[in-house]
Structure formats: C-alpha cells, structure tokens
Amino acid sequence: MVGNGGEMVAVRGLYKRYKELPVLLNLSFDIPRGSIFGYIGPNGSGKTTTIKIMTGLIRDFQGDVMIEGRSIRNWGKELSSMIGYLPQQTSLQEWRTVDQSLHTFGRLSGLSENEVKERMAEVVDVLGISEYRERKVSKLSGGTLQKVGMAQAMLHRPKLLVLDEPVAGLDPESRVLFKGLFRKLSREGTTIFFSSHILSDIEDIADTIGILGQGMMRYIGSMDELRARVGRTTEIRLETVEPVPSDALLERIPGISKVERVADNRFHIMLEDLREVDAVVDRTIRAVMAESIHVRAIHPNRQSLESLYLSYADAEGKL
C-alpha cells in the first residue's frame, strides 16, 4: 500500500492546473518520518500549490497524498489533527487578540479547554511572545505575527508541520529561534516540511532537499548527494604570507585543474576530483613551503546550496 512504509508523507502523481496553466505535472515524492524536508524551486514552480494540497486547502487535483497511510482526500478530524500549517503570511482575524486566536485554533483542533490553556502558555513561551498575549493581532509587527502563526501551527502537537516560507520576513534572531525550534521538534519526532527561498536556511537545517521545477520533482536527496551529483570541483582557498611569484607553481601540482589569482598572496584553487581534497591541500602546502613561502591559511570551500542549486539548474536546463 502506497504511503504506509517508513515515510510520513507519500505524494503520488500530483497533477494540478489553474485554467489552462499546468502547475504540477505528475509530482511524486516521499517525506521520511521525523525528517526536516526543505522544498525549493523557482517562483511559480508549484511549491505553495503542493503545500495547499497537502493541507487540504486545494481539493480539486489529480493524484493523491498519503499522510501516515491516510489519503488526503478523506480530509477530516484524524488527518487535520496530524497536521500543523503555517502559511506564507499569517493572516488572522484582526479584531482578535493573540490569546483569542490561539484559543479558538486550539479548541477547533480538538484540544480541551485545559489543554489549550496549558499549551498556549508553553508555545508562547517557547516563541518568546508571552508579552503580546493580550495584544490585538492588528497591532503586531510582521515578525511577531509570524511567531503567532507558528504558535497556532504547533499548538495541537501535530506529527507533521507544513510550513510555507516560515522564516521569510523574520529578523536574524528570530530566524535562529525558528531554526532551533525546528531541530528540537524534529528530534522529538515531528516531521517538518518547509519551503523557503532562503537557501542558506534550508542548508542549515534540512536533512532532505527537494528541488521542484516545471511541476516535477527534479531532485530529492541529501545535500551531500546533491553536491556529489552536480557540485563543481571543490575549491580550495589559499592565502600566503609572502606573494606567490607565478601561478605555475600551483598549476603543476597534481590534482589541481585551475588556479584563480585573487591577489598577490590569495588564490582560489579548483580541484579535478573533490575526493582528493585532503591530498591536494597537503601537496599545495609542501609546494609553496619548498619555495620559502609561508602559508597563512588554506581551507576547502564547500559549495553552498545556493551555488549547488544554480549548478543543478544549469545542468538540468531551466528548472
């Protein structure tokens, strides 16, 4: 049976079009239980549409989504209590206070009066918004509103958190708070599926990455697998104390494919094979020392997700 294995979510053959415009074309992927799944793709690639299907907000589509083996088409109390959802922009009824909003969402999610009160106190504390509890939603800043959004998403202890651009618009401190929270929730067994345009955030916390392009999943796997698949030759950054008179000194070292001089004493060195990085570092140090040039710093520079994403887009054509 589809979607009943070790995965929390199994997306199978999703197809969705808006009028004549197809957005998702046979999209399939699995989200392992307890993982943090980073979902990336260009604007208009269908990320939000996928999320809205997963959360039962879009019901007119082909294919299926199974959450713990239950089809999203049978949306009801059981499924909705498993999912916590944070939209791209948290929008709440403006006349409510933070407490009133959380209370209603908690009760509607099936928590008892006592459970709601207890959980509200916990989540506002974790998110650092205790002081805003009696404040009207319309008086909150964007960042605080996003935290209230996160609070309502995790209030009923869902097994799956579906978050659409959760850290967009947050200040650096809040981003660190959110990322720490995601890691903590993941350790406690919550599966987290989130989309983001801030690739460094995905790189920081996601253990699985999905790249969506033209309505299909173009890549799914870990960062390391992506790096091995499309990563350019790993770069080594070298800085010496004395100037290096000629690039040839470095170019003749076995394993180096290209040398870019940034300054008299600074170089970006490309490798032929990223597996040889340690050996090349060793040879480079020996080569420059042999010329009585001292090494100030040398370190491999791993490609960021952003750079890998662009490499992937290059390799696969337009995503």
Binding site: G76, Y85, P87, Q89, S91, F105, L108, S109
Partner: peptide, 15 residues
C-alpha cells in the same frame, strides 16, 4: 478576510 487568506487556518482544522 477572504482576500487576506484568513480562512486558510480555519479550513486546515476539522470544521
């Protein structure tokens, strides 16, 4: 409320 997508957070709940 419709324009601001206020109802989304209600619709994901069993109501």
């Amino acid at each position: 409320e419709k324009e601001r997508k206020v109802y989304d957070l209600f619709f994901v709940r069993p109501i």
